[in-house]
């Protein structure tokens, strides 16, 4: 039996094979998975916002912000014996849950979360090997740290593996 570890909003968790990392109900939030296929270790983050607003950037660094989540996970993964050059990334989430006419202050937050995640990965030189982002529905993720495969479940939609 593999152990299951659940990741909440604005959290990230690191785990090694055969643990399964899960996160539930990603809407505009984005799920970022990093995997080292040799060390069979991975990290999964569930981020809420792309980056802190001005004046708030003195906050304690957490995976609440997409721009920090990748850095925090990489540091932790290296401590756990992973090699930065071997890491690969997968992204899911970043949906638009409510109709666009309503989006005023947080317009396009899902999309901005995805962009922030891609930028953070690029800064670290981590290749993005698969993604399932955007659209207008919520997703739950199951990340297998043995295979690196992510299973994406959504309401009324076929299960996706990537």
């Amino acid at each position: 039996m593999s152990r299951i570890v659940s990741v909440g909003i604005s959290e990230f968790k690191i785990a090694s094979a055969p643990t399964i990392l899960m996160t539930y109900g990603l809407g505009s939030c984005v799920g970022i998975a990093l995997h080292d296929p040799v060390a069979l270790t991975g990290g999964l983050a569930h981020t809420l916002l792309p980056a802190p607003v001005r004046g708030m950037d003195s906050m304690v660094k957490s995976a609440k912000f997409t721009c920090w989540a990748v850095d925090l996970m990489v540091e932790e993964l290296i401590k756990c014996g992973c090699v930065a050059e071997r890491l690969v990334a997968k992204l899911a989430g970043g949906a638009t849950m409510f109709e666009p006419q309503h989006r005023t202050t947080h317009s396009g937050i899902g999309e901005r979360n995805v962009t922030a995640a891609k930028e953070a990965l690029e800064r670290r030189g981590i290749p993005l090997v698969a993604s399932d982002t955007g659209d207008d529905y919520g997703r739950s993720l199951e990340f297998n740290t043995v295979t690196g495969v992510i299973t994406v479940r959504a309401l009324q939609r076929p299960i996706k593996r990537m």
């Binding site: 109900g25 990603l26 939030c29 809420l48 802190p52 708030m56 849950m97 409510f98």
Partner: peptide
Amino acid sequence: VPVLSFDMAGAVIDYVLIELGEVGD
């Protein structure tokens, strides 16, 4: 004006947390 979403509760509410998340935890 109201907007509606029919989905997993987690996906529906993260939108509501955006503003709160910007200023605190």
